[in-house]
Design a protein around this nucleic acid. Structure first.
Lengths: 331, 331
DNA sequence: CTGAAAGCGCTAACAT
DNA sequence: ATGTTAGCGCTTTCAG
């Protein structure tokens, strides 16, 4: 059996409550006994039982990090960045439990007892049922990435504005016929990015060419297919905005498969500034989304909520930034 | 306060132990009361307190998934694949806690009480202290990816053999002057891959050219730098094996920056078959490591160990596979 | 400054 | 088939 505070108490010849206090650095314990008890604990290889402590303190020390799904649809580097940045912030005090929302068939384990707080990296409206549940059960929560209507803390990347600027950048480089490869159908981000593209066209009084908007699903493959479709058209766009870098990678591949050159024949703009964007040929001009910052901000905000539990419907917007490389031609 | 089995018991007019049994589907409870109690539980929005259950059952329902580090050094898609595949296997019964080993300053929270089992995705010998601790505390454990000397369950990808075959493939394509860009210095995988490269040279009685082995650190940037270094030499290799795809991506970039073409002037071979490998220009010929399978196998094995706790020093080797694309020229 | 005792929510003998 | 009771390991009043 593993060693408990009672074992330590026996060896030290004190009550187990004294051990508890000593280990928790209570000020009503003499330094002398503290040291003594800690030494014994160390010697015996004591490890606190988190379950027991959780039970009495009424907190689990768990923070849940939920993705819409852990299967397809989550960009790889996106996933990594979020886990990493959240983990970094909560480092010591909490454990990070990573899950896909769609791993749950029912939500009965989602309770305040089992989660001190929850971060949701939301990519789809289908998450709303889950978010509602968490909200109703009054678990401190931060929703990243997707705007929700409930009064919850929401950390967002300003995608609509981001794509507006991306499109504007293309326009300022002289492009007038601009295509767009869109993301996965029911993702909110897909719509927002499309909107930014449309906004920019309106703002600069540019017509939206029919058929210049083609659907992808955020995967590299879909970018390839979508671009192939675009290249079949009679009138080609001079530039194509891809709703993420992975699709841009596929698009680049399609272009060179067709024997065309980037950016001489056609310009390609990505979105995300994924790790590989600077190493494609040509190096991809893209838009950096501060995923890392979003994760950090979200985690920090969650800790605030846990420590001072006021419901809050605050929204934070993180701004994107254009990263100029070699895939766009100035006309 | 949240509802407990006692609350349910009160409403149902039974003892709380009856509620516990009903909820756990004990066979000594009549179907009638089971249904009744479950209905009440549902109505009251009951959610079991995992900590309390863990305390009495002496298991945490937590499975830890530890990476060497969550910072640099872990390939992104690698990370994603492992988390995803392990998560898929343990889906219902357990929670997955993801951490970097270097997040811990001391290991006192690593105990059998707090983890039912641990999967370690090990990339460095520096993990050994941690692995030893887990082993000593008799926590069911599976170590992925890196061979360890302790008698623990070890799931490995046969890197040495894998790179042997990769090099062999280059040799069979007529290459005689083959460079290698190596990985991060103290990673075991770095040494094994190098060994496979050396083995193949020995096996085919080929000389090892001095200076054809250059160090990288598995990052794209390092691949770029390493390749640049290689291209400075008087005698150029006709093919370069890169110890992972990310470095291959950097290498490709370096080659074209120098105005050389792949595979006409120089052939590049990757290792991993990362998601983006098929979308580089040219499409990268590489070696597929079954990371997904490794994660699944590891998780399944861990569940076995948890349910039937026999220490075991079994080793499983997963085989790699060459994925032929366009970055290698037949001489 | 320390000890005694209660109780967190749950499961599992042991009764009946 | 159900109730009674003890106890998992810990923290925290309340006494002294």
């Amino acid at each position: 059996m593993s060693v408990t505070i009672k074992d330590i108490a026996k060896v030290a010849g004190v009550a187990h409550s004294t051990v508890s206090r000593a280990l928790n650095d209570s000020k009503s314990i003499s330094d002398e006994t503290k040291v003594r008890i800690r030494d014994i604990a160390m010697e015996l290889g004591y490890s606190p039982n988190v379950s027991a402590r959780s039970l009495v303190l009424d907190r689990s020390y768990n923070i849940g990090l939920f993705f819409t799904t852990m299967d397809k649809g989550t960009a790889v580097s996106f996933f990594y960045d979020v886990v990493r940045s959240v983990n970094k912030v909560i480092r010591d005090e909490y454990n990070l439990m990573v899950r896909g929302i769609d791993d749950y068939r029912h939500f009965h384990l989602i309770s305040k007892k089992n989660f001190d707080g929850i971060v949701i990296m939301s990519q789809s409206k289908s998450d709303d049922a889950f978010i509602t549940t968490v909200h109703e059960r009054q678990i401190p929560m931060v929703v990243l990435n997707r705007e929700v209507e409930m009064p919850v803390c929401n950390i967002l990347i300003n995608d609509r504005t981001g794509v507006f600027h991306a499109t504007e950048y293309l326009i300022q480089n002289g492009h007038r016929k601009i295509g767009i490869i869109e993301g996965k159908e029911d993702f909110r981000s897909t719509q927002l990015r499309k909107q930014g593209y449309v906004d920019a066209h309106h703002h600069y009084d540019l017509p939206l060419y029919d058929g210049f908007a083609v659907r992808g699903d955020y995967s590299t493959e879909s970018g390839y297919e979508a671009m192939m479709g675009l290249l079949e058209r009679d009138v080609l766009p001079t530039a194509v905005f891809c709703s993420n870098d992975e699709m841009a990678m596929g698009a680049i591949n399609a272009v060179s498969r067709k024997g065309l050159r980037i950016p001489e024949d056609i310009s390609i703009m990505g979105y995300d500034d994924s790790m590989f964007a600077g190493y494609l040929t040509p190096r991809l001009t893209t838009v950096k989304r501060p995923v890392d910052e979003m994760g950090k901000k979200g985690a920090a905000k969650l800790l605030d909520l846990i420590n001072d539990n006021r419901a809050s419907g605050e929204r934070y917007y993180m701004n994107v930034q254009i990263v100029e490389r070699d895939s766009i031609r100035k006309l």
